[in-house]
Write a protein that binds this DNA or RNA. Structure first.
Lengths: 257, 257
DNA sequence: ACTTACGAATGGTTTAACCATTACACTATC
DNA sequence: GATAGTGTAATGGTTAAACCATTCGTAAGT
């Protein structure tokens, strides 16, 4: 058959019925016709409204729940409650991407380097006296962990992570806060796998933290950015070294016997 | 009642049956026991495997589909096909966060400033000769739009966006690519709302692009970062001004009568 | 006034049937 | 023999009615 003239229209949208229900409710929420706290009618009533079976309606509710748009409660006063969209879904999806190997650890690390730098710079611009005191308190804890030597390594990493999250809060930018949480909640497992406390490393990291917090205290954004980037960059380099080492070791193990 | 001693255990996990099914299949995928392309058994068979009703099983499949882990095809050879996790879900969730107002335009803009800067810096480090030629071709198009004057404003914004996306690709970092797509696909509506082409603005932006691409061509990361940040920052400042102007106008309108 | 027990309303699940779409093998035709 | 049409079986999509499990208000009992 010869090529047909004219626009080759897409097949009319395949309307799975439940998708239609999802779209209608979602639009109502995004258009604020439904606001957080509102309770949708009971399933048996919604079923009639949309003229679908209860099973189909429930598939739609399941999708909306997974999207984080509603929360479903059981019991007499239960029902589908409209939620304030939060960052949980974003974090969950991000976790899936990492766990499925679609994002390499190195790419995430490199991205983190840039983000932490900008976060520190913003924090240096905006930190209040009270927030700086909070940072200094956390720094004190990190010093204590360092004093404990090897036994404090794990806890030191925890404090380090908390300090970075605190800087994100101080930046007052909800996206930096969000991304900070997303990355830290997901990257920690790689620290445990690829980072080890060789002598002097904790002290070196502690020095970074001190310099960084000092720069924030003195409201020096550029200096804070430089130190933060350098600090995170070290982590990544160390991880890359350890990763290569492990890969090499595995190679020998499989080649010898 | 006085405070009770001892661990305050969480209520035993509320096991909705479909959630159990979701977890089992999801773990199988993340552990690579199921890999992209694999087809799950038909619903009627899976139903027996998990010992649940077909309705419940379908709720589970709906969730997995929404998470982007499987894709469902109809027909004789259809079924639930395991997918390679992609960025679509992340973008969709991000869109929901923005549309629901959980993220302010200014926060997104500020975040974008930092990200675009780092993206440009990376691109300057890694751009091949071929990629640079691509950028220069796009720049030529932008110059043509500028020559067309006011009529070219919309198209100029399109080209501007495409250049930034291209820089992300050149950075070779999947997260910068991902975030670039996420932000641009969502922020354009605000450009249309808050940006206008006052005389000279397009020429000014064009000059930014020229400088930025020149820095990439010359492999000057710091210069590329500086120019890119400055370029995006201007957008944000303009948007803030326009936003304030509109808010003020609305204030007068409601106060007068 | 407090406690208890019941009942109504809700989401959670099961069952069994039918509809719509698709791939593939078979048949009729040229 | 090649090709176009057709039937058939397997799949996901949808419906229907019933029952279970949880929760909360209320009425009865103390």
């Amino acid at each position: 058959m010869s090529a047909k003239k004219g626009p080759d229209f897409q097949k009319a949208k395949k309307n799975r019925v439940f998708q239609d229900v999802v779209d209608q409710i979602q639009e109502a929420i995004l258009d604020q016709r439904l606001t957080p706290g509102d309770v949708l009618p009971p399933e048996r009533q919604l079923r009639e409204t949309f003229n679908v079976s209860r099973g189909t309606l429930r598939e739609a509710l399941r999708v909306l729940e997974q999207k984080g748009l509603i929360e479903i409660r059981v019991g007499t006063t239960g029902g589908s409650v409209v939620r304030q969209a939060g960052m949980e879904q974003l974090t969950e999806t991000f976790t899936l991407l990492i766990r499925s190997g679609s994002l390499s650890v190195m790419d995430v690390g490199q991205f983190r380097t840039g983000v932490e730098g900008k976060t520190a710079a913003l924090a240096a611009q905006r930190a209040s006296a009270r927030e700086i005191r909070t940072l200094e308190t956390m720094l004190k804890k990190a010093e204590q962990m360092n004093a404990r030597g090897n036994a404090g390594w794990e806890d030191f990493l925890d404090i380090d992570q908390e300090i970075h999250k605190e800087l994100a809060k101080i930046s007052k930018n909800s996206l930096y806060i969000l991304v900070s949480e997303m990355i830290h909640d997901n990257i920690r497992q790689y620290y445990d796998k690829f980072l080890e406390n060789i002598p002097g490393r904790m002290a070196e990291n502690l020095k970074d933290l001190e310099e960084m917090i000092l720069a924030v205290k003195n409201h020096q954004p550029l200096e804070a950015e430089r130190v933060a980037e350098n600090h995170v960059h070290k982590f990544i380099v160390h991880m890359k070294e350890k990763e290569a080492l492990l890969a090499n070791r595995q190679l020998k193990a499989t080649a010898k016997p």
